[in-house]
């Protein structure tokens, strides 16, 4: 599986290209990343701020989730 998202991915790009990430993160305790305006930080910064213990693992799980949901860069601009 190709990595789609990394800790360096800006949250703005994440929300735009992989909207399914919003639900996944919310279920894992990282909420409100898009209310009004998507957060301006990277995913890594966000996970650190939220106190996620193993951010790399969560990102891997997120990529698995995106893969399963069938997102592709075709949905990206």
């Amino acid at each position: 599986m190709a990595t789609k998202v990394s800790l360096d991915t800006p949250v703005e790009e994440l929300v735009e290209h992989f909207p399914e990430a919003v639900g996944f993160l919310s279920r894992n305790g990282v909420r409100c990343i898009r209310c009004g305006e998507p957060l301006w930080c990277s995913l890594g910064e966000l996970l650190k701020e939220e106190g996620i213990e193993n951010p790399q693992y969560l990102v891997e799980e997120l990529n698995n989730h995106i893969e399963k949901k069938g997102s592709s860069d075709e949905t990206s601009k």
Binding site: V15, P19, V22, G23, S26, R34, C35, P38
Partner: peptide, 15 residues
């Protein structure tokens, strides 16, 4: 407004 907003709502309803 966006697909992400729909995702957000559905995740909240699971909670």
């Amino acid at each position: 407004v966006t697909k992400a907003a729909v995702e957000d709502m559905m995740a909240a309803l699971e909670k």
